[in-house]
Amino acid sequence: MRTGTWIEACAADAIEAEDVIRFDFEDRTYAIYRTENGDYYATDGYCTHEKIHLSNGLVMGSVIECPKHNGRFDIPTGKAKRAPVCVDLKTYPVKVEAGKVYIQA
């Protein structure tokens, strides 16, 4: 996969405040977040504990909770915050231009 390339992920208004959506590109899957204060973030799509897609989880402030085992990550940093997740989540730079969300993957 190319690295460092900006990829158009979705329209900015496709994600509600304090929510997350799934974005698949080539052979990877990502989670794109919009926090309560309107900031956008991107991480790997799967939880680091097990292969569960975080886009079905719950965004609370700047935290995402995995829908299967309730493990939590800090969205901006990807840091694991609650067992059973122990491994941090990979994060990706995000920019919003002309109403579109781009991630640098």
Binding site: H49, K68, H69, A83, P84
Partner: peptide, 8 residues
């Protein structure tokens, strides 16, 4: 951890 496995 046991219970996490029970859910998996």
């Amino acid at each position: 951890w046991s219970h996490a496995r029970h859910h998996t």
